[in-house]
Design a protein around this nucleic acid. Sequence first.
DNA 1: TGCTATAGTATACAAAAAGATACTAAAGGA
DNA 2: TCCTTTAGTATCTTTTTGTATACTATAGCA
Lengths: 117, 117
Amino acid sequence: MEKKPENCRVENALGILVGKWKPIILLYLLQEGTKRFSELKRSMPGITQKMLTKQLRELEEEDIIERVVYPQVPPKVEYSITEYGRSLEPILEAMHEWGTNHALHKVTKEKDQQKSS
Amino acid sequence: MEKKPENCRVENALGILVGKWKPIILLYLLQEGTKRFSELKRSMPGITQKMLTKQLRELEEEDIIERVVYPQVPPKVEYSITEYGRSLEPILEAMHEWGTNHALHKVTKEKDQQKSS
DNA sequence: TGCTATAGTATACAAAAAGATACTAAAGGA
DNA sequence: TCCTTTAGTATCTTTTTGTATACTATAGCA
């Protein structure tokens, strides 16, 4: 496998996951399946509509999620993970697991430093 | 495993990997082992000293890399991945692999769109 | 004496990401 | 008639990231 810094493709994946809300959106859709825009918004207190729209558009652009518009009033738009998008799941799981452990690691380290000071 | 958006730990991992140069630094150190500051800099054309220093400090802060200073003039400082930092390797590999495939996926998608237009 | 190399720091600035806030259309209900 | 709901868009401001450039100390070398 090519891992030379010159042709590092980690950013290709990173770019898709990066964004304050993207991992949250993805985990939510992976677990809960298809969701409406308003449901997504309600599930993420603090996000603005602009941000949610932007992140969703970016994920759609990369073929990770699908957007289905129902021609109704008031509007109804549903979002879901694509078949292809599911291929990100193992990475998200691995990061979640590592991240959970890392929170612990930091606490442990801090305690050690307190002891030695 | 806890994957509720409310307690998403993906960012814990993401935060460490994010930064224009961090994946490159990590892959390089993982492959090449211990390296001096100047070697890192030379291997990453385009990075400024300030940026390199900053990224290295952040990785050190998270216990991913180790910094060893030799009391010499001119100075000599060596960086290497910590034992703990190695636990990120599978994630980086997975992202690299996914990212490589994703580049292909995009090209394929574009071709499909051209055909249908 | 002046030049090089090393591993930085300091300062100013530009660009990108995120946030706050106000606005839209049009159906259905009180 | 007015209010609510939905899924956005349009601006503007703030915060975070990243870049450019100049500066530092000191040993060894010519």
